[in-house]
Design a protein around this nucleic acid. Structure first.
Lengths: 363, 363
DNA sequence: TTGTAAGCGTTATCAT
DNA sequence: ATGATAACGCTTACAA
């Protein structure tokens, strides 16, 4: 159920609540449309109309109202409109992992797109699945119109929690779908195939798959694609080494360092994301004395800015965030516009291969 | 004044608005406290009390209400409370430059802190000063309780715009202050001094200051501190080379590349942020054939994750984001709790020197 | 402890 | 074109 109780325990909230428990000690009351109406010598409706384009109002009246509003410093209040219409024009954006530049950039683009669509972003940062439930309840209590999330929705429980809100949900790179849930996915599997083909052309003999966390379905799809692609080049599946990371630089570094101890020397690496790939590049040099691309070819995913930094010069897949965000907005638009029940759609956007030095050398 | 007009033009907004212009075709009405009251056979106030900890209600009644609420799927609506109290418990967070991992991480921490204080984040991403004005009007129309911004508030115009909102504002690393505006700053000037001292110990003879955009007051303060620190080591000011960047990796790279053409070879660099420092390190190697720290000692600012990546191993100043965020929460708390007029305070948090390889070598 | 009723600031409807 | 009025869903003062 609702954890409104937990909410009440929060320090600032309690303080504010206590402060305004009675009407007597109310703060500076904001200027309302009544005040403007009185000042302009018109009705409250006239004020409303002055601020609603397309409503029938004479230029003279509008002038009077706007003048009065300006002098009083009136700022329309959208809260009552939310009560009346049931729409808040706020979208809950649930994110996590901002330490990955990819997600940071994606959020930036998403926020911009939503703003341009006249929607507000009610942001919810989530560290783990545990906080999600209570977070959702809070968002919902603000009567958000929809939810957009870049969390890789892995667990069935989360999907169910989202579905139960009876609110349009748009995900990025989520595999689970359900009623009310739409998703925009990068063509993860296809990119895995492309990666294997490219590395194959560069003479791959001892491929390595550097996987992201297993709960990340996008990572799993990339791995499956890569595995199939490796087979397609004629290398038996058994020769493909798989190493587990957790999408961080350190996990990429450590994974390679572990390999060194096991005496495994890959000559072609596909990493589930760029951060791990960067870690791998550094570990190869420091722990194995291997240089990229001379000794090892490496590819990542996400095309984060650091992939283009000269020390890494990493071939990567660009998720085409702009396109994905645009698609997400379409899905959102559709879901918000439909009256007849929950929408559930899936979009696939091809990732664009960005070739850089890490796969350039012929060996 | 308000650009509510512009808001009305936004596509999604218009569509939703049109769709619910009349009461007839209203959507699935949400479950209200009235519904719960009816189902539980109690009054509406009883429902309200059941969800308000500390209010006088019998255990039996509360049970009945909660049961009815659960079976109906009732979710309390906070919107009416906003109208009644005038407090929304929403804080407008105005940000930009998320492509810098430092700001991304800062946002993450801030969002977490606000959530833990029971405040919601109404996010506003701003590309430039132009969007800010209209953005603010929108935020205000949602009756936010305060604004927190990591934008380096440079222009006097922005400060004035913020002051006029008559809303508590908390900034990070802003120099301009005014009524209603509080700010938490890193000890930029002090860090500049420390940088010069450290580089001086490493034999600095030809110092270089890699500046951020001139509108960034934090960068200016760092530069002033460094300049003074350089003088303190006995090097005449005229020997200090200043180069202009814009806080990006590319600008750091280009700045060094330009120096090469001018035949200038620094032996100690202090960069206004880590991104530029990374660019500088790569340019030194690629364009000048200089290696860090053997030929050049380098320091940055922000201690972004990439500073710890092995390819850079960059000495940096950690802004202690956790502390700064904690301070910001205190300032916010204070501003929200005060009834007697606008608050305006400034906090300084010392940056912590993180020594890494880029300044380690004795040359 | 519980119920009744007023009120928050706006917008849609209806009457003028 | 304009004004009066009801309604949105909840909280709180007050009465019982």
């Amino acid at each position: 159920m609702c954890d409104i109780a937990a909410w009440h325990d929060c320090t600032v909230a309690v303080r504010l609540r206590a402060k305004h428990a009675t009407w007597e000690n109310a703060i500076i009351r904001a200027v309302t449309s009544i005040d403007v109406a009185r000042a302009a010598g018109v009705s409250q409706s006239a004020v409303s109309r002055a601020f609603s384009p397309g409503s029938s109002i004479s230029a003279r009246t509008k002038q009077k109202v706007l003048a009065a509003a300006a002098s009083l410093g009136y700022r329309p209040n959208r809260i009552p409109a939310i009560m009346l219409s049931g729409r808040s024009f706020m979208v809950g954006v649930v994110i996590g992992g901002l330490e990955n530049p990819f997600y940071a950039t994606a959020l930036e683009r998403l926020a911009t797109a939503l703003r341009e669509s006249g929607l507000q972003v009610l942001l919810m940062h989530v560290d783990d699945a545990l906080t999600l439930d209570s977070a959702l309840d809070r968002l919902v209590s603000y009567r958000i119109d929809a939810i957009v999330t870049s969390l890789a929705i892995g667990s069935k429980a989360v999907v169910q929690a989202l579905s139960q809100l009876r609110l349009p949900v748009v995900c990025f790179n989520s595999s689970h779908v359900g009623p009310w849930i739409s998703t925009v996915n990068s063509n993860n599997h296809g990119a895995g195939l492309v990666a294997a083909r490219l590395l194959g052309r560069h003479g791959m003999q001892r491929p390595l798959w550097l996987a992201g966390p297993s709960r990340n379905s996008a990572s799993r799809a990339r791995g499956r694609g890569f595995c199939q692609g490796v087979r397609d080049t004629g290398i038996p599946s058994a020769r493909l080494v798989r190493v587990q990371g957790n999408d961080t630089y350190d996990s990429g570094y450590d994974a390679i360092a572990r390999l060194q101890k096991q005496g495994i020397r890959p000559d072609a690496i596909f990493s589930s994301n760029d951060m791990m790939a960067c870690g791998a590049i550094d570990a190869l040099r420091e722990c194995m004395g291997l240089h990229c691309p001379h000794d090892v070819a490496i590819m990542g995913y996400d095309n984060i800015p650091q992939a283009a930094w000269r020390s890494y010069d990493l071939t990567s897949f660009d998720q085409q965030t702009d396109q994905m965000v645009a698609r997400a907005m379409q899905l959102l638009d559709e879901a918000l516009g439909t009256q007849d029940g929950p929408v559930s759609r899936t979009c696939i956007v091809d990732a664009q291969l960005i070739e850089r030095g890490s796969t350039r050398a012929a060996r």
